[in-house]
Amino acid sequence: MKHVLPFIFLIYVSTINAGGVYQEPDAFIAEVFNDNVPKPGVIWLDKDIKAQLKDILGHNYKGLRVRYWQQDDRTAWILDEIGKDKPITTGIVINQGRIERVRILVFRESRGWEVRHSFFTEQFDDATLKQNRELDRGIDNISGATLSVRAVTRLARVALLLDQQLNKPRAG
């Protein structure tokens, strides 16, 4: 028993402080665009977009504009959403209307940090948005991280929606 206790303690300590800054947002943007970062742009949120965002998020989006970086058909977004109490900062890259990459950049909650792992974020690869603003695939839950899973899933839908809005004029 006395050999097992320190082991249990080590596992406990390694799990309680697993949150934090995994990657600075501007380092993520630099990585996405191979250090050739385009000038940022903004999408202003009109009533219609705000209503759609509220439908996805379940609450009003705080802010009147959202920043993005675009190069050809690729857009990158840094978005925040609260899992339980604190915002999870997530970097999302969309390529031709499909998710290319999802990465958890800053995790501030005390639980649910498992969403940072690639086995979770890779589920979003190639996902797109259906007519009803849902993802075209199911995202598996992580036991004990349900709220974080839901928050990241909502952000993926938000990024896809904003990318669609951005490309609307071109499509027309």
Partner: peptide
């Protein structure tokens, strides 16, 4: 903020 006090955006400066 807008001149009416509405939140426009929160801009983290990053490490640069």
């Amino acid at each position: 903020l807008t001149s009416d006090g509405e939140l426009v955006e929160r801009m983290p400066t990053g490490h640069s």
